[in-house]
Amino acid sequence: MHLLKIGRRTGSTKPAIFMDCGIHAREWISPAFCQWFINKAVSTYGTDSQMTSLLDTMDIFVLPVFNIDGYEHTWKIDRMWRKTRSRRNGSPCVGADPNRNFDAGWCTLGASSNPCSDTYCGASVESEIEVRNVADFIRKNKSVIKAYLTIHSYSQLLLFPYSYKYDLAADHNELLQVAEGAAETLRSLYGTRYTSGPGATTIYPAAGGSDDWAYDLGVKYSYTFELRDTGRYGFLLPESQIQPTCEETMLAVKYIAAHVLKNLV
């Protein structure tokens, strides 16, 4: 798993944002965005004042493809594959849903204990090596990680905790305000409309998700993006929409990053 760290070297520890893409294999627009983000962050440093200020002050950890084996499987064999590609003794079914495998209400609401299900929670918490690697890294660096962004598709939503329960997060009002501001900024480019809110009530209950886990760990600004579209193309978003989707999503990410930057503790 390749993790990139983007930021200006200062010789001292900086606060950071962690962003991952491609947790679900078939959501191709997600890894496309992480690649876009990496290129723009590096190539516009020094010319884009907002990006320059961000990278001067913070580091951004980017995991371009979370579910590597699943992603490869969608390119070679089954375009609509979602899960990891792990195997279990005694089961003919392959893989688990990495976004049901984190230690956040694990295997309760909106997750399945059936190994053949697309929302299979896994044999145990962090049973999937991809999940364990990410969780270990964030735990190890939680003193500097101030925001967690995970990029999915589709539905045009900007979600935040909680998904594994209906209770509102302690920081609900601020998280909602930031999400709505980010969605408004995103809409300013091409008119794409996003809905913001807690995962459980905005889309559906789902236990074991990475944003809930990160939030409960202490990463206050934890958000899940569900990128274009709302169902016309779904996971098969046409190539012509890659660039506009990335451009508008970049605005939202920069908006959240700017808020995090202003509210560093």
Rank of each mutant, 00 (worst) to 15 (best):
A258M: 11
I23A: 10
S117V: 08
M19G: 04
Q243W: 00
Q241I: 03
S222E: 13
A147F: 01
D212C: 06
D212T: 09
T44L: 09
T195I: 15
W81Y: 01
Y255S: 13
I23S: 09
V219H: 03
P115W: 00
N101S: 04
A41H: 02
D103I: 02
Q50T: 12
R26T: 11
A252D: 14
N99Y: 00
T185L: 13
G209L: 06
S188T: 13
S53M: 05
C93G: 07
W75P: 04
I151R: 09
D69F: 00
Y71W: 03
H152G: 08
G22P: 14
G46R: 07
S49Y: 00
D20T: 06
L54I: 12
T57A: 04
N39R: 08
H24T: 08
S43Y: 00
S210M: 09
Y164A: 06
E128S: 03
P115H: 02
I129H: 04
R187P: 11
A96I: 07
V134P: 11
A169N: 13
D56A: 01
S240Y: 00
G110P: 13
G11R: 01
E174C: 05
I203S: 10
L149I: 15
A169F: 01
T84F: 00
A252S: 15
V134S: 09
V178Y: 02
L237I: 10
G234D: 10
T10N: 07
G199A: 12
T224K: 06
L3T: 14
D167V: 06
G90I: 08
T150G: 06
L63T: 07
T195Y: 01
C121L: 08
S240T: 13
P115G: 04
E184V: 05
H259V: 04
L175Y: 02
T44G: 02
Y71D: 10
E128T: 04
A16M: 08
M51I: 15
T230H: 02
A170R: 14
